[in-house]
Amino acid sequence: MQTQQLVPLALPRGQKLFCELCRGPATLRCGSCAVTYYCDVEHQSADWVSIHEKICQLLIPLRTTLPFYNSEEERKHGREQKLRREKFLAELTQAVAQNFLLEGKHEDAIPAALHSLKFSISVHSSNAVELVPAYLILAEAGLGLGHLAQAEEYLSQAQWIILKNSHCSNAIQSDFHRNLGLLHAAKGNFEDSLYHLANDIYFSSCAFGTNHMAASGGYFHMANVFFRQNRMDIADSLYSEVTNIWHHHFSHFIGLQYHTLMTPAELDMLAEEEETTEEVLDAKQRAEAKQMLSAILEIREQSPRPQLAQIAKVLHTLAMFHYLILDVPKAHELVMKLLQVMKKLPKYEPSESLHQLVKLLKSKPIYAK
């Protein structure tokens, strides 16, 4: 891993430079790019681990004096080139920050998200709707760290932009209301939390369709709020809704792979659909499915009066999930556990998707992931 050299600053009288992260007075400079400044070693280290190592050299042409252009055409080309670089960096830094959130590394997500926000402002202006994803990442990181005041500030910035932009997408509004719902839940404002989580479900349904997996997060977090209020009947029904959404989604793709296995003559025709597993289970969806379904299974199993049919449904859904992400040993383990539960349910009829999953597992060797 590359290391960063730091150079103490000796500034001429009256000249001020600011820290990349906190905008406080800078005392250090990156010795590699020579265009990035920090107030102390801690902020330098945080930025380096989060994003600076990846973009260090890319910052040089953006932060050095522009060359002298001989014509308006050259000046226009220079501006367009700068804009393309900033757009690229805005997208790259946002993707890196989002990946840190998926890994539960909330502290590491913050510097990358701050960079994304700065580049987005430079490209789109300070009130553009394109800034909202960066604000939401910063808010989610703050919630993950328990910094509720900071999270609320970022959500307020996002809300202001959303209110000023009537064309803000349903998907962005869904993410905004989910974060606001989680903030209110963390503060103990359960009724406000439920209101915003209901809006999350509404906007995600508008964006992706009723009972799409994008809405499962809203149902899951609503269930958690009712669980905390000891309103178990409502929580139970919402946890079941989450399980049903993912179960339906995974069953569809298990069916596609099963029919490919059973009818090899159609392999070429179905190859394209088989390859869509990555698309329908992107990194964010994988993280959400695993988090929600694992939590629901734990709640079901630890219930004072476990409902075996509900446990079986979650086990089946998790088994399909792990098969689809190519974790065959885990899928096999969950199916074995499911079959043990089903022995205690004489009236429980195995579904077609379970038969298909078992046959798919039998077609593959058990290997360590």
Score class of each variant (00 low, 15 high):
Glu153Pro: 06
Ala271His: 13
Glu91Trp: 10
Ser166Met: 02
Ala309Tyr: 12
Tyr258Phe: 15
Val49Leu: 14
Ala185Thr: 09
Leu324Glu: 06
Leu66Cys: 03
Leu183Ile: 04
Val225Tyr: 11
Leu58Val: 02
Glu274Met: 14
Pro304His: 10
His52Trp: 00
Glu107Tyr: 11
Asp200Ile: 04
Cys168Gly: 02
Leu101Pro: 01
Ala214Trp: 03
Ile172Asp: 00
Glu288Leu: 13
His167Glu: 13
Ser205Asp: 09
Lys369Phe: 05
Lys82Arg: 11
Trp246Val: 01
His249Ser: 03
Lys362Ala: 08
His115Gln: 15
Arg300Asn: 14
Val280Trp: 11
Ile162Cys: 13
Gln229Phe: 08
Lys54Leu: 11
Ser240Leu: 01
Pro12Ile: 04
Glu73Cys: 03
Thr27Asn: 03
Ala295Leu: 14
Lys54Tyr: 02
His322Arg: 06
Phe18Asn: 10
Glu73Thr: 10
Ala235Met: 13
Ser126Pro: 01
Ala309Gln: 13
Ser116Tyr: 00
Leu117Lys: 07
Phe68Gly: 03
Ile234Lys: 12
Lys16Glu: 09
Leu308Pro: 03
Glu266Arg: 15
Ala368Lys: 14
Leu354Gln: 06
His167Leu: 11
Ile162Ala: 11
Ser120Val: 02
Ala186Asp: 06
Arg29His: 03
Leu138Pro: 13
Thr277Asp: 10
Asp192Gln: 15
Met336Thr: 05
Tyr195Met: 13
Ile121Gly: 00
Ile234Asn: 05
Lys362Asn: 12
Arg231Val: 11
Leu83Gly: 00
Ser126Trp: 02
Gly14His: 05
Ile60Asn: 06
Tyr219Leu: 06
Asp47Pro: 02
Gln310Met: 13
Ala10Ile: 04
Ser45Pro: 00
Glu274Arg: 15
Gln285Phe: 09
His115Phe: 11
Phe68Tyr: 08
Glu42Lys: 13
Glu72Leu: 10
Gly181Ser: 07
Phe176Gln: 03
Pro133Thr: 05
Leu308Gln: 10
Glu298Arg: 08
Glu352Leu: 10
Val242Ala: 07
Cys30Leu: 01
Met269Asp: 05
Leu117Val: 05
Arg23Val: 13
Gly255Leu: 02
Asn165Met: 02
Pro365Glu: 07
Leu143Lys: 09
Leu339Lys: 14
Met262Ala: 15
Asp108Asn: 15
Leu114Trp: 08
Ser353Cys: 08
Glu352Gln: 07
Gln257Trp: 06
Lys76Phe: 01
Gln150Val: 06
Thr93Arg: 00
Glu349Gly: 01
Thr64Pro: 02
Lys187Met: 03
Ser193Asn: 04
Glu288Pro: 04
Thr260Pro: 02
Phe190Tyr: 15
Lys118Gln: 10
Asp40Arg: 10
Glu103Ser: 08
Ile172Leu: 05
Glu272Met: 11
Tyr195His: 14
Thr93Pro: 00
Val132His: 04
Glu352Gly: 02
Ile311Asn: 05
